[in-house]
Write a protein that binds this DNA or RNA. Sequence first.
DNA 1: TATTGTTATACTCTATAACTATA
DNA 2: TATAGTTATAGAGTATAACAATA
Lengths: 175, 175
Amino acid sequence: MTNEGERPPGPPPTGAAFLLAQLGAHAADLFAERLATLDLTPAQSGLLRLLAGSPGRSQRELADDLGMPPSRFVAFADELEQRGLIERRRNPVDRRLYAVHLTDEGGTLLAQLRQVGAEHERLMTEGLSEPEREQLTGLLRRLAERQGLSPGVHPGFRSMRAERTGRRKGVPGNR
Amino acid sequence: MTNEGERPPGPPPTGAAFLLAQLGAHAADLFAERLATLDLTPAQSGLLRLLAGSPGRSQRELADDLGMPPSRFVAFADELEQRGLIERRRNPVDRRLYAVHLTDEGGTLLAQLRQVGAEHERLMTEGLSEPEREQLTGLLRRLAERQGLSPGVHPGFRSMRAERTGRRKGVPGNR
DNA sequence: TATTGTTATACTCTATAACTATA
DNA sequence: TATAGTTATAGAGTATAACAATA
């Protein structure tokens, strides 16, 4: 088989796009591991952060933001509610809606989560000087904006499986 | 709930680690879309590239490199063989092993794949000047090395699902 | 006995589509 | 009639473990 392209056959791709995918997957894996320390999955941490930013929204809205179907969100929220991290409050005006809130315990965990995030940040950028780190962050931010990626949520949440499956039908409105 | 951390509660994380995960997932998604043009999944493209670099290896070795169990590799390779892209040759010395090779047709597709890769690279780094692109690539390469990531293969292959399931028992040794 | 390739089974995960209550 | 939340079912994808052939 002849090599009729522009590139040599030996060296595998080492362009920026490939490195981004590789480092991104690695970063996600590593973060998931550290998150397991707090008994959290990436998707769960995403919800906690969402609730910190804008509390009281409906399950459907939150499900949309996390990129999961509403049906899946139910079990997802059930577990966090059982663990006392989030809270569902009925909306008095429209009783079809739940308003999802962070509990105090959830807020405490969120603080820990942020520490884990900061540590993760440090470990991922290890080996770079402070100016280099800022340079990198600046370039990445520009790329993200150019690619139309909204800050704060990323698509990887969809494919992250939940850890423990021991889900019991708990407190919430047994109709 | 009080904000006892170092960061303000509003702004979501925009550090380098988060951006890497976000951009990495985006890059992988985009690349998978472009790959679909050639009727290839990321994992399949990974195998083609592996075979181009070091042909004739055993299925077990290749499965290990791709991060999939040998049992899964069988169906995976079956499809590519049916499509005439790869070839299984019996090793005369050790008849337990297959030596997996790229066919001529596979080589042709690999060339197209590289074009797609180059186009992907261009689109992902859009908006950066040439020096900036090199700067970014250099920083990413250093990070990848520091994190112990081997060049050429990334972990994301595991979670990519195959497209078409129409798999028939074909040519290979029906024992 | 160990190893490659293979097949079969069992399981996890998920979306789709009903269904209930409220509007 | 439409929408939020929920539940149930059915399907895709996978790893685990047995199995056959060869070493």
